[in-house]
Amino acid sequence: MYSEQSFPIYQKRRVKRKRNKRLVGLIILFFLFIAIIIYLKSPISRIAEIEISGIDLLSENDIYKTADLRIGMYYLPIRTNSIKRKLLELEEVKEVNVTKQFPSKLVIQVIEEQPIAYLLNEDGVWLPILENGYIFNGNSEKNFLDRPLVTKWDDVNKIPKLVEELGKIKPSILVEISEIWQSRDLNATFDSSRLIIFTREGYRVHVLLEELGDKMNLYPAIINNLKTKTTKLGDIYLLESMRFEEFDDDNN
């Protein structure tokens, strides 16, 4: 009676199904494995395109080198955060956004620090001084020099202060500044905070570095007031006392 039970048959069937399932599983696994191998061996798994936008100062090469990137590297192991971290170490980079686009594209959007002025080095090359105080030392010939020009600067330690003060000046006044300089030749007792500014119109403005931002913002008002009185150019002293002296033959 016991033997008449269908249990063994049932069991037998179950084993068979189990075997079938395992087989299917194995086959799927096998194909998956093949697919992975094919994927890994094919160029689809590798970066085919790196799109970089927003770079003026840096070159694409700089980005590649810094972030250890190259066309043809595997797509999967790339960690966007680490690229971001590496790129942010560059002084030129202000913000960066990295995204992976499956299957093989990497998009890097860079926001660079903007030049706030240009510094003339000994070789006659104009180096951008960036908003964070960093002096960019690469090739920047391709840039339109639409910032104030720092023609002589003897005290490099004061560059960050200069940047900070320039940042306070309204953009429309910044446009009017042709040159800014400090120099040992100025007077016998070198005062590195004493600056001279040449404006586009040809005024010579004397101002202290510490007060540069605040005092230069008064420039348009001073000029407007001046122009109602004289058409002559001259020295504008924005020191303890503010005054105007026309250029004449004996003051130089």
Partner: peptide, 12 residues
């Protein structure tokens, strides 16, 4: 011309 203006011209 001022230096800045001269350089702008030459670049343009």
């Amino acid at each position: 011309k001022s230096l800045r203006e001269a350089l702008e011209y030459s670049y343009a």
